[in-house]
Design a binder for these strands. Structure first.
Length: 269
DNA sequence: AACGAAACCTGCGCGC
DNA sequence: TGCGCGCAGGTTTCGT
């Protein structure tokens, strides 16, 4: 999926285009995206206005009159507004909004999710109650207390959204490179200094990526004009067999926790 | 309790 | 050309 910077880019565009509009209809072509009873989902959102669109971690949150519509794009979820094309087989949910606006949810791999919660409870119920703090907000002592007990690769810990939210496979590689820490190091072996450095690096990498509109790699292209520029700044991710820009060592691709991982063995200890 | 692997899906690129 | 395999900005569920 898009990671925090891509979701934030999508959020800004949706917020500009959709704030104030009212849901008038919903067509669902693949029901498993909607984690609610379909009839209740439809009847609940119809008639409600979009007051605001928020983001927590990698979740988009449409704030309506009475409810929060909570959306996760997972690997390949995208939105299109008023496309000039007939519906295609990867478009699974179509929202009809006031002022003739059509919002289409496109998801090749069908992994995305939508939940509907009341405004009273949405932060305290699944899925948002599973979401850890973002690097910008997390308490460094709390983070260190969490990781120092874990006999798991630090990369896997950073990808665990219950512990810290927002990082995905691209930005975690970049964060670990920036912090000069090898992705295979166990949480147990990370010092407090290194733990603090990881948070600082994550904040730096994510905020720079947000400012550049995220990255556009592989399939995540051209939805809502999302063509981020951060891929130009990548130091290790996708750079297999290229020289490290800091030390010249050839960047390797390894596997950590089942995920493709790019690393400079000289810079990252 | 904690950790690794499989599962959920589809499409693309690569090697034979 | 065609087929099989591995892989993909993610997370949950299933075994051990």
């Amino acid at each position: 999926m898009p990671e925090l910077p891509e979701v934030e880019t999508v959020r800004k565009i949706l917020s500009n285009q959709l704030t104030g509009l009212i849901f008038e209809g919903v067509d669902v072509y693949y029901e498993k995206i909607i984690h609610e009873d379909l009839n209740i989902f439809r009847s609940t959102i119809i008639g409600q206005k979009i007051h605001r669109i928020d983001r927590i971690g990698k979740y988009l949150i449409f704030i309506l009159d009475q409810n929060a519509l909570i959306i996760h794009l997972r690997m390949e979820g995208k939105f299109y507004i008023n496309p000039n094309e007939p519906i295609n087989k990867h478009e699974h949910v179509v929202f009809h909004l006031s002022h003739e606006v059509e919002l289409r949810y496109h998801d090749t791999r069908k992994f995305g999710t939508m939940h509907l919660r009341s405004l009273d409870h949405y932060l305290n119920t699944y899925p948002l109650n599973q979401c850890g703090q973002e690097p910008f907000d997390i308490d460094k002592d709390f983070f260190f207390e969490k990781i120092k007990k874990k006999n798991v690769a630090i990369k896997s810990i950073l990808l665990n959204q219950k512990i810290i939210s927002g990082l995905g496979n691209i930005y975690v590689d970049e964060t670990l490179f920036d912090a000069k820490i090898h992705p295979n190091r166990k949480g147990i072996s990370i010092t407090k200094y290194e733990s603090d450095q990881l948070i600082e690096s994550a904040k730096k990498i994510l905020s720079e990526a947000v400012n550049l509109g995220g990255s556009t790699i592989r399939s995540y292209t051209a939805s809502l004009g999302v063509t981020g520029l951060f891929q130009l700044k990548l130091m290790v991710h996708t750079k297999v067999n290229e020289p490290c820009q800091i030390c010249g060592t050839t960047i390797k691709k390894i596997r950590v926790g089942g995920r493709g991982t790019y690393v400079c063995d000289t810079c990252q200890k």
